[in-house]
């Protein structure tokens, strides 16, 4: 009964536990950072535009992740309801990621482009006005609150520290990009913006072009979720893990 040594010595027991768990943890976690195939090589993934980033911050601020996951698993039922399964690459610029595992509401990983802006706005203002059986709380105040994101560039710089490849140009034009995406032509050079953030949706998301609200930001974020990768150009076998 040699393990009596462990059973009767708290310090030794703690060290033993730590050692055992560390091995399990290290073996599972460390290779994910060093293996090349952890993140799939697909085209189209880009960092969030300033407006989308603002929307994402609101998403996190309001705790949307408490009820919505952003992770379509490779199962038939999920594929038929939500679309293609999520890739690691699609959340590579998420800090922190929003995968989640709690689906009180539906998964949102591929909600982008699925519904109209109008629907999203009406739904966020009063979920029951479009889905009578919904239990989601209303977020009507988002439409009234003007977006304050003066520190957009600072956010982007911070994200750059943890590995999001924002270019100096993108950081310099953060404020302008915010305007362009929320207003279109009126805000500035749309083409240059699209070169910086390909596939970004432009326009007044909440239907009120005069000001950019938190609603605009959140809907801009929702409308781009899961839309960056064009799966018609991806050989499915390169994704097999």
């Amino acid at each position: 009964m040699k393990h009596e040594i462990f059973e009767k010595n708290v310090i030794l027991l703690a060290i033993g536990i730590l050692l055992t768990i560390s091995i399990g943890g290290l073996v599972q976690i460390v290779p994910l950072y060093t293996m090349e195939q952890t993140i799939e090589k697909v085209d189209g993934i880009r960092p969030y535009s300033p407006l989308e980033l603002a929307g994402r911050n609101i998403y996190i601020r309001e705790g949307c992740y408490n009820c919505h996951s952003q992770m379509v698993r490779p199962f038939r039922d999920e594929a038929e309801r939500y679309g293609h399964y999520s890739l690691a690459a699609e959340s590579m610029y998420d800090h922190p990621f929003q995968w989640g595992s709690k689906r009180t509401g539906p998964d949102l990983a591929r909600v982008g482009g699925k519904y109209s802006n109008d629907w999203h706005v009406a739904h966020l203002i009063d979920p029951r006005s479009v889905v009578p059986e919904s239990i989601m709380p209303p977020y009507a105040f988002l439409a009234k609150r003007e977006l304050s994101f003066d520190d957009a560039a600072d956010h982007m710089k911070t994200l750059r520290i943890v590995g999001v490849p924002y270019s100096d140009e993108q950081i310099a034009t953060a404020k302008e990009d915010l305007r362009i995406q929320g207003m279109g032509e009126a805000g500035g050079d749309v083409e240059a913006f699209l070169a910086r953030y390909p596939k970004a949706k432009i326009g007044s998301f909440d239907g009120d072009a005069k000001k950019t609200t938190e609603m605009d930001a959140l809907v801009a974020y929702l409308q781009m979720l899961g839309t960056l990768v064009d799966f018609t150009n991806v050989d499915p076998e390169t994704l097999y893990r």
Binding site: K114, S116, A122, V131
Partner: peptide
């Protein structure tokens, strides 16, 4: 079961 269309509203 009834699902109201979301797009267009």
């Amino acid at each position: 079961n009834v699902l109201h269309d979301r797009s267009p509203l």
